[in-house]
């Protein structure tokens, strides 16, 4: 007998008390929890996103379409970045003003090569106000998962209010599970020393979020 059959057989014997007429999934699982916590205007939702991002030590900036290239240039310059990773579908305008070498996100780059890059600029798929989370889904303006991971400095552009949702339930509805998803809430951190939160372990230690209106 294969282990598959053995395990499934054990499961079925263990569940001998379960009758076939049990309530189906839809009835067995109540969803009395809230879709959204609190009532907010779209502007207030963006404000809450900014607050919660900052609460977990992400650096929040705001810009309009015109000011964005200059802001990106300034942030990269302040960081002293010489090389910046750019996903293939990132609007070229966003980094147009910056005086840096653009390294394109390519499959053939080794992790060691990515490790020498100073910064990365990406878009995002959705941002969650209640938790201060940005979600990347590997779309062309976000690139492969590793490019927002290996460099120590991540600049993420969120289009507001369009890409902002209030809550986790709303975010899941917008996301496609078939895509590789990365949920990011602040820079890399750990609670492993005396259960106290410290920022800065393996992921980018500086996360800058630009709210683009």
């Amino acid at each position: 007998m294969s282990s598959r059959d053995r395990i499934l057989g054990r499961v079925r014997r263990a569940l001998a008390d379960v009758t076939p007429d049990e309530r189906p999934y839809g009835e067995a699982v109540p969803r009395d929890h809230l879709r959204v916590h609190g009532e907010r205007t779209p502007e207030q939702t963006v404000e809450l996103l900014a607050e919660n991002l900052a609460d977990y030590r992400a650096v929040v900036h705001r810009a309009d379409a015109e000011g964005l290239p200059l802001l990106v240039m300034r942030l990269l310059a302040e960081r002293g970045a010489r090389e910046v990773l750019v996903p293939s579908g990132l609007p070229t305008r966003w980094t147009a003003a910056a005086d840096v070498a653009r390294i394109h996100d390519r499959a053939e780059h080794t992790p060691q090569r990515l490790d020498r890059v100073d910064s990365v600029v990406t878009g995002c798929a959705v941002a969650i106000a209640e938790t201060g989370t940005i979600v990347l889904d590997g779309s062309s303006d976000q690139g492969r998962r590793r490019i927002s991971l290996v460099p120590d400095h991540h600049i993420c552009v969120v289009r507001v209010p369009g890409q902002v949702v209030s809550s986790v339930p709303e975010a899941l509805e917008r996301l496609d599970p078939a895509r590789p998803l990365t949920w990011i809430s602040g820079p890399s951190a750990t609670s492993d020393i005396e259960l106290d939160r410290v920022e800065g372990v393996h992921g980018p230690r500086t996360l800058e979020v630009i709210l683009l209106s």
């Binding site: 938790t131 492969r144 078939a178 590789p180 809430s185 890399s188 992921g203």
Partner: peptide
């Protein structure tokens, strides 16, 4: 409110 990183993957993705 949320942990810093959550990864979700479904099988394999080409070139990622």
């Amino acid at each position: 409110r949320m942990n810093p990183y959550t990864s979700m993957w479904t099988g394999t993705t080409d070139e990622d």
